[in-house]
Design a protein around this nucleic acid. Structure first.
Lengths: 191, 191
DNA sequence: CACACCTTGTACCGATCGGTACAAGCGGCA
DNA sequence: TGCCGCTTGTACCGATCGGTACAAGGTGTG
């Protein structure tokens, strides 16, 4: 089944884009990591590299929508949703060992190519988190401001963790964020 | 004078690396932006693209050391130094319209090539800011934590501003940062 | 004016880029 | 067994990659 082969390849493709950026991800790398020859790659993704990137962005968008944004919007207990966001984020980014593909695309020229998707990814995150904060009792303006700060902080934490070669920097950032998003709850004495 | 031609080219080269990343910056782009043919480029930078990137990183390191890190460490009034850091940062990153080259390198494979320089850039910033905070009355641990948070936040603000196509997001982040680094000072009613 | 030297444009190198064409190989099905 | 169609490896395309070689052009000095 083509659908299966395609979807099976996406995580591998995502890692290559994540580590090398859009331009740096060559078909040779993509094929090797996915375990597919050029023929199979182009059979699964007739649109070539651009379609691979689109598919990867689709998958990421879906993952975040399902696991993070939707709970933030709909979970009856907003604090639980925020806690979940923090722990899912920590897992997803492998505690700082993994970069954010969307963030990496945003910084380099990949931005022009995928500007809409990139903007949507971050805007959706901000809006979903702001809604959760609103439901948790924050005023409209404070909720929006705090949400933007949180999403921005996560990106900054990833940059810094990678730059310093110190994934723990990401964990420290998440701990600070927890204290700010859910004040009054005792933070775990960090690992 | 070779020295002058070399140094005159560096800002142009920096912009290309900034917008395209290390791999995405081709010699054609670099030469065109710098207004130099291939011959001149290799005359000024015999080591090729790698030496150009090194020279650009050198220049950035020097700029930040002079304009930001040194004042943070030595300026008698630490609050003035912090205020200066914020305004210099805002200017340097063109109020969010300009990405951070070092951050962009950190996210993609450029990291492996320049890992040491990248780590030093961020570590020096964190340490200098922590020292200023310490001199402003913060306890050792809080100063270090707050400094890391600030440097991380600046990177996050740049990513978000570029991702959303909304440079103002960077300004909002700087305003939040000012309130946290220099509590009690009235913030400008944002522009 | 002539010489020497620094600078630069240009042609060229092998490698690799993203992408295409296509034929051999392989499965299911009768 | 023979057939058919999906899948895939491989050869190949023009373009561009980073880098080198070198000769023409410009400049300062005598």
């Amino acid at each position: 089944m083509a659908q299966t082969a395609r979807e099976a390849a996406i995580p591998a493709l995502a890692e290559v884009f994540r580590e090398h950026g859009y331009e740096g991800a060559s078909l040779a790398l993509l094929g090797a990591r996915a375990g597919l020859g050029k023929g199979s790659l182009y059979h699964a993704f007739p649109g070539g590299k651009a379609e691979m990137a689109q598919a990867v962005l689709d998958a990421i968008e879906t993952w975040f929508e399902t696991r993070i944004y939707a709970p933030l919007r709909d979970e009856p207990d907003p604090r639980a949703a925020i806690r979940r966001m923090l722990s899912e984020t920590e897992t997803y980014f492998r505690s700082g060992g993994r970069a954010c593909l969307v963030g990496a695309f945003a910084l380099t020229e990949g931005r022009d190519r995928f500007a809409e998707r990139i903007a949507r990814y971050f805007a959706a995150w901000c809006e979903a988190l702001a809604r959760a904060l609103r439901r948790d009792g924050w005023a409209e303006a404070e909720a929006a401001d705090l949400a933007e700060e949180a999403v921005s902080a996560i990106q900054g934490g990833l940059v810094l963790a990678r730059a310093l070669g110190d994934p723990a920097a990401f964990g420290r950032m998440l701990a600070r964020l927890r204290a700010r998003l859910i004040p009054g709850e005792a933070a775990e004495p960090g690992g």
